[in-house]
Amino acid sequence: MNPATPSRPALLLSRVDVERIEDLLERPEYRSLDTAALRGELERAELVEPGAVPGDVITMNSTARVKVIDGNNEHEHELTLVYPRDADGGSDKVSILAPVGSALLGLRAGDAIDWPMPGGHNARLHVLSIRYQPEAAGELHR
């Protein structure tokens, strides 16, 4: 496991989420995507069983309030981290395969991360709060 750095906080992930994401990454329709950053996050994360995930960690299907600082632009969004099949194009759902989705997985409320975005620039994402997390709601194998 790689140590956390100021731009990459420590990650805690559900073993079930990681297994499902790894299966997803092996599907032919996603093999051509650049998933190196997501794969790197999966490799450096600490894995725990779903019931051991603290309630302030973003897991799959969690809804979080996030501030995105992209250059001189700063916006707050409430985002739900979803699998590609559930990303319906709305601004409130972000796929785990999108740069913002990959960045959010495993972060805790209060964490911030610098993340590469399309076009070759970085954005800083701050997790302000988590409104819903499946594990905290008792949905351990959704």
Rank of each mutant, 00 (worst) to 15 (best):
M1W: 02
M1K: 00
M1E: 01
N2Q: 09
A4K: 02
T5C: 06
P6T: 03
R8T: 13
L12D: 03
L13D: 03
S14W: 01
R15K: 03
V16F: 11
D17A: 06
E19H: 05
R20M: 07
I21N: 00
I21A: 01
I21G: 02
E22C: 07
E22I: 07
D23H: 15
D23Y: 10
L24I: 05
L25T: 00
E26R: 15
E26Q: 12
E26M: 08
R27E: 05
P28E: 05
R31T: 11
R31H: 06
R31G: 00
S32H: 13
L33G: 07
D34H: 09
A37M: 15
A37R: 15
A37D: 14
L38Q: 02
R39D: 08
G40T: 09
G40R: 11
L42E: 06
E43Y: 08
E43Q: 14
A45M: 07
A45P: 01
A45Y: 05
L47T: 09
L47I: 11
L47F: 07
V48D: 04
G51M: 10
G51P: 06
A52V: 09
V53A: 04
V53D: 02
P54C: 12
P54H: 10
P54I: 12
P54G: 12
P54S: 13
P54N: 10
G55Q: 08
D56N: 12
V57N: 03
V57L: 04
V57T: 06
V57K: 02
I58A: 13
T59N: 07
T59F: 00
S62T: 11
S62V: 07
A64M: 11
A64P: 10
R65Y: 00
V68D: 00
V68L: 05
I69D: 06
D70C: 13
D70M: 10
N72I: 13
N72F: 13
N73T: 15
E74P: 09
H75D: 15
E76K: 07
E76V: 13
E78H: 12
L81H: 14
L81E: 14
V82F: 06
P84W: 07
P84D: 01
D86L: 12
D88R: 01
D88H: 00
S91M: 02
S91T: 10
K93W: 05
S95L: 12
I96F: 04
I96A: 08
L97F: 04
A98I: 08
A98R: 14
P99A: 09
P99Y: 09
V100E: 11
G101L: 11
G101T: 12
S102L: 12
S102C: 15
A103N: 09
L105Q: 08
G106V: 10
G106E: 11
G106Y: 10
R108W: 02
R108K: 12
R108C: 03
D111M: 05
I113L: 13
P116Y: 13
P116W: 07
P118K: 14
H121S: 14
R124T: 09
L125Y: 00
L125T: 02
L128P: 00
S129Y: 03
I130Q: 02
R131W: 04
P134N: 01
P134F: 00
E135C: 01
E135Y: 04
E139Q: 01
H141G: 02
H141C: 05
R142T: 10
R142M: 11
R142K: 14
